[in-house]
Amino acid sequence: MALTTAQTGLSRARRGVAPGGPGKPAKSVNRKSKLSSQTRKTFFWLLLPSVVLLILIHGYPLIYAGIQATHNGSLLDTGEFVGLDNFATVLSSEAFWKAARFTLIFTIVGVFGSWLLGLGLALLLRTKIPAGGTFKVLLLLPWVVPIVVSSTAWNWLVGTPDSLIPSICRNLGLGTPLFLADPTLAAITVCIFKVWVSFPFMMMMTSAALASVDTTVYEAASMDGASRWQQFSGITLPLIARSTYISWILMTIFCVNDFPTIYLLTGGGPVDATTSLVVLAYRTVFQDFQTGPGVAIAFLMTITLVVVSVILYRQIRKSSVE
């Protein structure tokens, strides 16, 4: 009985209804303004230069990349037309699937690891803690500091057997872990590094979403007997769902396309253990001078990102709070 009462209270709280009763429903206003033909023409001519500029900026490189992906050439010469042979070569390559597997792990850890850490810190910052403003500024440093500086600092911490963390482990009798020389430890280190440099972004996105939540809904739910966990799962998460899906889309794009985080820390090694698809595409084009297969890898990455973005965007449209 208490659980049913709490669930009813949560439902009322999400709708902004006070505990005393449902209240009067707000009158819906549906006013459709009709634009005149002249106004539409004005909007069209105002938007046309921007649309043309976007097409020139993004359309030309995309078309040229498509030409390169279907030719067997180099950076200097387009080469002969080979159709979809480059895509077939890439999809049958063991290196491609190894890089795809690491990219998937890197993305999942980067997105959900940074989101969970950012969500926890955003909830913590909503409470009254000493020097909360200063603490918030300090938490932004991993995101604000240039990635070159961050990767250099991490190399100093774990890069060699004489670095700080391996030395501490050796003094504690735990051996000397080679964080960037062992394939498994290198993959774990790169994923943790990605969470470290990404959680401030998630924290800011979540903090902005939490700031728009009216605190009275929690008071209403508390009066109806809802626990802290019920308030979090039944009010907080649904009310910030749209912002959450948007941050997941953006962070997925950031992780899949993240070249400097991996390349500056490990260069894709050891033995390709931390080689992602974007690093593999870079090596294929600029080190192996195989433009066609390298651009084909980039196209496959783009297609995957579009599919994931569409799926998450549909979740955004379904996340309207009842």
Results as ranks from 00 to 15, higher is better:
residue 86 N to K: 00
residue 64 Y to C: 03
residue 93 S to K: 03
residue 50 S to N: 09
residue 74 S to N: 06
residue 89 T to E: 13
residue 74 S to K: 00
residue 83 G to L: 01
residue 52 V to I: 13
residue 85 D to I: 03
residue 90 V to M: 03
residue 76 L to D: 14
residue 76 L to Q: 12
residue 60 Y to E: 14
residue 63 I to M: 14
residue 88 A to K: 06
residue 67 I to A: 07
residue 93 S to R: 00
residue 68 Q to Y: 10
residue 57 I to T: 10
residue 65 A to L: 10
residue 78 T to H: 02
residue 73 G to F: 06
residue 59 G to C: 02
residue 50 S to I: 08
residue 62 L to E: 08
residue 70 T to W: 09
residue 54 L to M: 12
residue 80 E to S: 11
residue 81 F to H: 11
residue 64 Y to A: 12
residue 49 P to A: 12
residue 76 L to T: 12
residue 56 L to T: 15
residue 83 G to W: 07
residue 72 N to L: 06
residue 90 V to W: 08
residue 92 S to C: 00
residue 89 T to G: 14
residue 79 G to R: 01
residue 78 T to Q: 04
residue 49 P to S: 05
residue 79 G to A: 02
residue 52 V to C: 05
residue 57 I to M: 12
residue 89 T to P: 09
residue 51 V to T: 09
residue 53 L to W: 11
residue 52 V to M: 13
residue 69 A to Y: 08
residue 82 V to T: 06
residue 63 I to L: 14
residue 67 I to V: 02
residue 79 G to K: 00
residue 58 H to K: 10
residue 61 P to K: 15
residue 57 I to S: 12
residue 91 L to T: 05
residue 85 D to C: 13
residue 54 L to F: 15
residue 87 F to G: 11
residue 92 S to G: 12
residue 75 L to S: 03
residue 77 D to G: 07
residue 64 Y to H: 13
residue 84 L to F: 06
residue 58 H to V: 13
residue 71 H to G: 00
residue 66 G to W: 09
residue 86 N to H: 06
residue 59 G to Y: 02
residue 74 S to M: 02
residue 68 Q to R: 03
residue 55 I to G: 12
residue 82 V to D: 09
residue 88 A to M: 12
residue 53 L to T: 10
residue 74 S to A: 01
residue 63 I to G: 10
residue 87 F to I: 02
residue 63 I to K: 07
residue 72 N to G: 12
residue 51 V to A: 09
residue 69 A to E: 02
residue 80 E to Y: 08
residue 81 F to W: 14
residue 54 L to T: 15
residue 60 Y to R: 13
residue 58 H to Y: 15
residue 85 D to Q: 11
residue 77 D to K: 08
residue 78 T to E: 08
residue 77 D to Y: 15
residue 90 V to L: 01
residue 69 A to S: 11
residue 56 L to R: 13
residue 75 L to I: 04
residue 87 F to E: 00
residue 71 H to V: 10
residue 60 Y to L: 15
residue 81 F to G: 05
residue 83 G to T: 09
residue 78 T to G: 06
residue 60 Y to N: 12
residue 68 Q to P: 09
residue 53 L to A: 15
residue 87 F to M: 03
residue 75 L to F: 06
residue 88 A to E: 03
residue 78 T to S: 11
residue 50 S to Q: 10
residue 51 V to F: 08
residue 68 Q to K: 05
residue 62 L to G: 04
residue 69 A to L: 02
residue 87 F to H: 07
residue 69 A to W: 04
residue 75 L to T: 12
residue 62 L to F: 15
residue 71 H to I: 00
residue 85 D to H: 13
residue 49 P to L: 08
residue 79 G to Q: 01
residue 90 V to D: 04
residue 76 L to Y: 14
residue 49 P to R: 07
residue 84 L to C: 10
residue 55 I to V: 14
residue 86 N to P: 07
residue 71 H to E: 02
residue 56 L to Q: 06
residue 55 I to Y: 14
residue 64 Y to D: 13
